[in-house]
Nucleic acid binder design. Structure first.
Lengths: 222, 222
DNA sequence: GTCGATTGGAGAGTGGCACTATCCAATAAT
DNA sequence: ATTATTGGATAGTGCCACTCTCCAATCGAC
């Protein structure tokens, strides 16, 4: 398959594919001659993954390169490959991670620390992108007057555990470590919109249930 | 409070506040003279909300203006104010909403339709941002070979319901409709990073549990 | 073989968008 | 009176994903 076909099958313009090749997001095709290269199904797949990371995950190109490097790094054992990839994934809400150090931030940090201790979570501690962004989000909520105390955080954490089990179940069905690492990245990113969209739909339902529409006044004069 | 103080207390540069005023994201302050205006606590609060929508929710300025217009629209009843605000919120993953119409997309649309029917969800049907983005996300998963079938979607949907109940419980504690609409928007946006970060932390834990690190070989020669 | 079309590669350019720097006249502070 | 500050308007900046343009090598049709 040459670039034109890769472009046609993926729906990505050739100019963009060239750009990804240049940026190292896509491995070069097999060189057939000085000006020809052949791409395989693995390029098509990688291209889909790149698009998912960048367009769905809103990941900067440089970050996507790091994540993919971890996915491809055969020298690491499975545990670390999964870990490096997960660590490199950008936080869901940049701009929260480096929040100010006010009262709200300190309270939030304490609350998150307590939660982690209670749950016994210690893989990703303070300093990890996810942890710091979580602190920032809880602080932002506090500043607007919406408390996110231990009880509420715990409720969210239980839900998160359920989601994590769902993803890991799917991961375990795969055979090779390479497949699992790629799946880990893809599912982390692509399940996010699934979850968030369903949450919004569920909110609309629950909202309509609790705050029903008033009886319709058809064609009323205002 | 004048602009300098508003800036100091919010941490937002005055140039940016001026920009928000110009764009209609922030109502003008009370005019004291031709060149002076006073801002109140409500401006500080609105400014925090604007920052949350734009920086945390990654919402375009124009969209934030629409959402805030719905929040402020006193002419609508509560049901519709909540609905308009929710509809205007941008989808969590733009670029998925307008996916191609291939086999994966059709299958995804069918799966989502079935799910909605089974759950009896009908507030936001096809055409709504959340619904269309969900279809796009399921299709993207299918193209990468990760099925998101009815069973898995249902599992996610149950989780989403739980989350929605959590948010609505908090909403019902508020007194005025105005507060509730604002809270609805703020919680929809700000709980997203909380949930997503906790999910990533949970994934790391679960992953470490299922794929433990191999016994450390300290200072090994490679 | 020859010649137009296509390919891959490299660099500069474009567009969108959130912000920001610069001015300016009017007013507040001293 | 004089200097600093404020609010307002306008134009500019920086970032970043992408896209355009050009070029030489090569492929394919005749």
């Amino acid at each position: 398959m040459r670039m034109a076909e890769l472009s046609a099958r993926s729906g990505v313009p050739t100019a963009t594919i060239k750009f990804y090749l240049r940026e190292g997001l896509l491995p070069p095709g097999e060189r057939l001659s000085a000006t020809q290269a052949a791409y395989g199904e693995e390029h098509l797949r990688r291209l889909s993954l790149v698009r998912a990371l960048i367009q769905v995950g809103r990941m900067p190109v440089a970050t996507a390169r790091e994540v993919l490097a971890a996915v491809d790094d055969e020298t690491l054992d499975q545990h670390n490959r999964l870990g490096v990839a997960a660590w490199a994934l950008p936080s869901p809400a940049p701009g929260l991670a480096a929040g100010e150090d006010d009262e709200a931030a300190r309270t939030a940090r304490r609350a998150v620390g307590t939660l982690m201790a209670e749950l016994g979570w210690e893989e990703f501690g303070p300093g990890s992108p996810a942890y710091e962004t979580l602190v920032g989000a809880v602080a932002a909520l506090a500043r607007l007057g919406y408390p996110c105390d231990a009880a509420r955080l715990t409720r969210f954490a239980r839900v998160a555990e359920e989601l994590a089990r769902t993803d890991l179940d799917l991961l375990e069905e795969l055979e090779s470590t390479a497949e699992q690492v790629e799946a880990s990245v893809a599912l982390t990113v692509l399940h996010e919109p699934v979850l968030l969209c369903l949450r919004r739909l569920a909110q609309a339902e629950e909202s309509a249930r609790r705050f029903p529409a008033p009886p319709e006044r058809r064609a009323g004069p205002g």
